[in-house]
Amino acid sequence: MRDDHTEALARRAAAGDAMALNDLLTAIRPAVLRRCARLLPCFQDAEEACQDALLQVARAIGRFEGRSRFTTWLYVVVANSARQTYRSLKRRAAEQHDLPPLDRPDPRTTSVIAGSRLDFLDALERLETRRPDLVAPLVLRDVCQLDYAEIAGHLGIPAGTVKSRIHQARADLREYLSPAL
């Protein structure tokens, strides 16, 4: 995904150009799918989150104001979509009596990487209930790999606050992810 081309398409799409929106969605789909797959261990789940993220982009592109880079805005949408897909999958599994809930991955059927992603998503949910202000900076930095200045610009807070929140979020996640002794 070429950044300058994507940014131009996003500006045109935000201004109401339907052809630019179509081209934008086509251009960003591979990167969106890769980002969803970083969080969701099952490819079908990542595809579902990708489709949801692309739909969100299509619906909300008119609200993209260009204050930050489009890719920064996009990564927020993608991370939220992947987390929402995970919550939905967890809820669906809990509603089915014949299937175990997705509280803990089954070590016999889940790879170490996939299990750690599920643990990470569970830890993010716990963090969000306790300190929702810490989740966005952490996800933007550690999942979306944005730099501190981009995160600060997107969230409208000073870079020092971003760093502090990320530090606190990582400390809290370590506590959630540590096995009980």
Rank of each mutant, 00 (worst) to 15 (best):
A18N: 15
P105W: 11
A79M: 07
D122Q: 15
L121S: 05
R35L: 13
G62S: 05
P158I: 03
C144N: 12
A53S: 09
T72K: 12
D3E: 15
R104W: 09
R130F: 05
P101S: 05
L54C: 04
M19L: 14
G153D: 11
L74K: 06
G16S: 02
A60Q: 12
Y148R: 05
K90R: 13
R92I: 06
H97T: 06
D119K: 11
R91G: 00
L177P: 00
L74H: 02
L40N: 08
C42Y: 09
E48A: 01
R34S: 01
A15M: 04
Q84K: 13
L138I: 06
A14C: 13
S164V: 01
Y148F: 11
A136W: 12
L177N: 00
T129A: 14
P105C: 07
A180I: 02
A136P: 08
A159K: 08
P137A: 04
A10H: 09
D122E: 15
T161S: 03
W73P: 09
A15P: 11
L177T: 01
Y86D: 05
T85R: 14
I28N: 08
A46Y: 03
A18S: 15
M1S: 15
R131P: 06
E125D: 13
R174N: 02
L177R: 02
F43T: 10
T161E: 09
I166L: 04
D23P: 08
I151E: 04
A94W: 05
L55Y: 07
A114L: 01
A13G: 11
I61T: 03
S81R: 10
S88K: 13
D142I: 04
L124R: 13
R131L: 07
E128T: 12
L24F: 03
D122S: 11
I151L: 05
V112F: 09
A37F: 13
A149E: 13
R91H: 09
A152S: 10
R35N: 11
T72E: 08
L102S: 00
F120E: 10
H5Y: 14
F64P: 06
H97Q: 13
Y176A: 01
I157L: 05
A18L: 15
T72H: 11
R69H: 08
A149L: 10
R92E: 11
K90T: 09
L181H: 02
L173H: 02
N22F: 10
T72R: 12
S164E: 02
R29V: 01
C36S: 08
R59A: 01
A49Y: 00
A171Q: 04
G160C: 00
L181Q: 00
R92S: 05
D17Y: 03
R141Y: 09
Q44N: 12
D172K: 07
G16M: 00
L33P: 02
P101Y: 06
D4Q: 15
M19R: 14
R170Q: 09
A149G: 02
V76W: 12
L89K: 12
L146S: 08
L39Q: 14
T85G: 01
F43Q: 12
L146C: 07
L25Y: 05
L102A: 01
L99P: 01
H167E: 00
L155T: 07
